[in-house]
């Protein structure tokens, strides 16, 4: 991993980037209710990754929003009783390659959960009663449960409440 500090004006420089495929992300020291609106490398969308071919300097622009969507809700089991679960909001399409595009919450024993700072877009919501951490980043694992996901569209600044059935 290569990093470059961000100045208070938002500028950064990362040197010595060898040829290869990369993802970029921002690290911050205070919780911030933000999401990546766009990330472009030399004008081309780089949110789901990009390739560095040689030593030519490259220019990146990252636009952040602070009006992400919010989602809360309840997890129910197949007998419609509240259930604890790991709730995962999984992005659709190529953003599945980007772990930071997922949102994860733990539903409490009465099944309640909250997710915030969600980038606008289309998602599927899953609630697993028992799941290994980050198993959902494995495309093969997700394919097994794809049909159990609850489709959700999130808009800028929107708030929604949902009920989702737990996957045992």
């Amino acid at each position: 991993v290569l990093s470059g500090s961000v100045t208070n004006n938002g500028f950064f420089t990362i040197s010595g980037v060898l040829p290869g495929n990369y993802l970029a992300w921002i690290e911050y020291h205070e919780p911030a209710n933000i999401y990546v609106k766009s990330m472009r490398l030399d004008g081309v969308d780089a949110r789901d990754g990009f390739r560095i071919e040689g030593p030519s300097p490259r220019q990146m622009e990252i636009v952040l929003g602070d009006a992400g969507g919010a989602l809360d809700g309840a997890v129910l089991n197949d007998k419609l009783a509240p259930s604890a679960a790991t709730v995962v909001l999984v992005p659709n399409g190529s953003l599945r390659r980007r772990s930071t595009a997922y949102k994860v919450a733990v539903a409490d024993p009465v099944g309640r959960f909250q997710l915030q700072a969600i980038a606008p877009g289309d998602y599927k919501l899953f609630a697993w009663v028992d799941v290994e951490a980050n198993a959902w980043l494995d495309a093969e694992f997700l394919r097994t449960y794809e049909e159990r996901g609850f489709p959700i569209s999130v808009g800028e600044g929107t708030k929604a409440s949902v009920r989702v059935t737990a996957i045992p």
Partner: peptide, 26 residues
């Protein structure tokens, strides 16, 4: 290697002081 430079842009300038770094990984 290449140099990747750029800028983080946000409507809320207060957010900029919370960022530590931009990172690249494979």
């Amino acid at each position: 290697g290449a140099e990747v430079s750029g800028r983080v842009i946000t409507d809320n300038p207060d957010l900029l002081t919370r960022f530590d770094s931009v990172s690249l990984g494979g």
